[in-house]
Design a protein around this nucleic acid. Structure first.
Length: 299
DNA sequence: AAGTCGGGGGC
DNA sequence: GCCCCAGACTT
């Protein structure tokens, strides 16, 4: 009988090796030194599609500015968007603020502790729900992010086509979920990287069928609609960035000139659509002042 | 299932 | 220039 990834003994060996490696090599990241659900939540949202190195720069300031979920709920969306400067994906800031206000009225200003109650909250998908439940509330649940997905697909390639969540749940050591999940992510970030992984330093190298023969990941071709090959979200980001630094509302004319100085008149409709979508997202506010359209962050 | 949503740093 | 990154949401 050939061993599979469900072989208990084989999995247990891998679990012990990774846990030991993690306990020795774990970086002292600030969100690993707290169980405060709010602080864990902020870190997980910030880390969505964002490197650890950048989150490290913004995380302390954000928590100083908004020390608790209640303080976040009591702030304006504009305040949160400003504090999000440099992070990208500004919808995350908006959703975090919505979550805070929603928790204030539904959960007395606290975060629920189960994946079922967390998932579906603004900006909280399956990964973040499980991450907060596990890292803050000690729930024994799997967390599958891009690191975990990559590591598991290499260590357990037999299930390459299987749902990574099923694999992750099957190999999760129930008693050590926190260290295991963090360890998988740490391994993916430091050793089992997307390109040119350091198999020579990997604690799982003797068990890994993919060791030293990693095939380059398939190119994920971007299909985003572009204007002159630049995705719209880049211009959305520029609009928000201009509004961040202006204490007052800005006329659409001057806003457009700040964002794109040489915009052709034929493209003004395109720019108007950018603003429409930003307004629909709740990212900006458009008001009329004596017949003139003015734009600001939602104060 | 595919599009959309930022920004910075590595190469 | 291109690529990657602790995902979520909309269509």
């Amino acid at each position: 009988m050939r061993r599979t990834h469900t072989d208990k003994h084989y999995v247990a060996l891998i679990q012990r090796r990774l846990l030991r490696w993690y306990r020795r090599h774990a970086r002292p990241l600030p969100w690993r030194r707290t169980k405060n659900p709010y602080r864990i939540l902020v870190s997980e949202v910030m880390l969505q599609q964002t490197q650890v190195s950048r989150v490290l720069q913004k995380y302390p300031d954000f928590l100083r500015r908004f020390p608790t979920l209640q303080r976040l709920a009591a702030s304006s969306p504009a305040d949160v968007i400003r504090a999000w400067q440099g992070m990208g994906y500004n919808n995350r800031a908006l959703n975090l603020h919505r979550l805070a206000r929603l928790a204030a009225e539904r959960y007395h200003g606290r975060l629920p502790g189960t994946p079922d109650d967390l998932i579906g909250l603004p900006g909280i998908g399956r990964y973040t729900a499980n991450a907060v439940a596990c890292f803050a509330f000690g729930a024994s649940v799997a967390t599958v992010d891009t690191n975990v997905r990559r590591v598991l697909s290499r260590v357990f390639p037999a299930r390459l086509n299987a749902d990574p969540w099923l694999v992750a749940e099957r190999v999760l050591p129930k008693r050590s979920a926190y260290d295991w999940n963090q360890g998988l992510m740490e391994l993916g970030a430091l050793i089992c990287t997307a390109k040119d992984p350091a198999c020579g330093e990997c604690p799982l190298v003797v068990h890994c069928p993919s060791a030293h023969r990693i095939v380059p990941a398939l190119r994920v071709k971007s299909t985003e609609r572009t204007r002159r090959s630049v995705p719209d979200r880049i211009y959305r980001g520029r609009v928000v960035e201009v509004l961040r630094s202006s204490r007052r509302s800005v006329s659409i004319i001057s806003l457009r000139k700040s964002v794109i100085p040489d915009l052709a008149s034929s493209e003004r409709k395109w720019f108007a659509q950018i603003l429409d979508r930003l307004e629909r997202d709740g990212m900006i506010r458009v008001t009329r002042k004596n017949g003139d359209l003015r734009v600001s962050l939602p104060e």
